[in-house]
Computed example of a mutant assay.
Amino acid sequence: MSHKVVTHWKGNLQFESDNPSGRLLTIDTSQENGGHNSGFTPKALMLSSLAGCSGLDVVSILKKMKVPFSDFRIDTFGELTDEHPKYYHTVSVEYHFYGNELDENKIEKAVNLSIETYCGVMEMFRRFADVKTSIHYHNS
Rank of each mutant, 00 (worst) to 15 (best):
F72E: 02
V91I: 15
S21E: 14
G39T: 03
K64E: 09
E94G: 11
E83L: 10
E32C: 02
L62R: 00
S30D: 12
V93T: 12
L50C: 02
E79Y: 07
S70F: 04
E32N: 06
T81H: 00
A51G: 13
G55R: 11
E79L: 06
N33S: 13
V93N: 07
D82E: 15
E32I: 08
I74F: 10
L24D: 08
S54E: 12
K63F: 02
F69I: 00
A44N: 07
V67I: 11
S70I: 04
K43S: 13
L56P: 03
M65S: 02
G78D: 02
T41H: 06
Y87N: 08
K64W: 00
E83R: 11
G34W: 11
A44S: 11
S92Y: 15
S49C: 08
K63R: 14
G35F: 06
L24G: 11
D57T: 03
V91R: 03
V93W: 10
V59G: 08
H89W: 05
M65I: 00
G35V: 02
S60D: 15
F77M: 07
S21R: 12
L56F: 12
Y87K: 12
G52H: 12
P68I: 03
I61W: 00
L45M: 11
D75I: 13
G55Y: 13
E83F: 00
H84R: 13
I61E: 05
S92M: 15
V91G: 00
E32G: 01
L47E: 01
A44H: 12
E83T: 14
D82R: 10
L80I: 08
S49Q: 06
S48C: 13
T29E: 07
I27W: 01
M46L: 15
S38F: 04
S70R: 12
L47N: 01
K64N: 12
E32K: 14
H36I: 05
K64T: 03
H36R: 10
M46D: 03
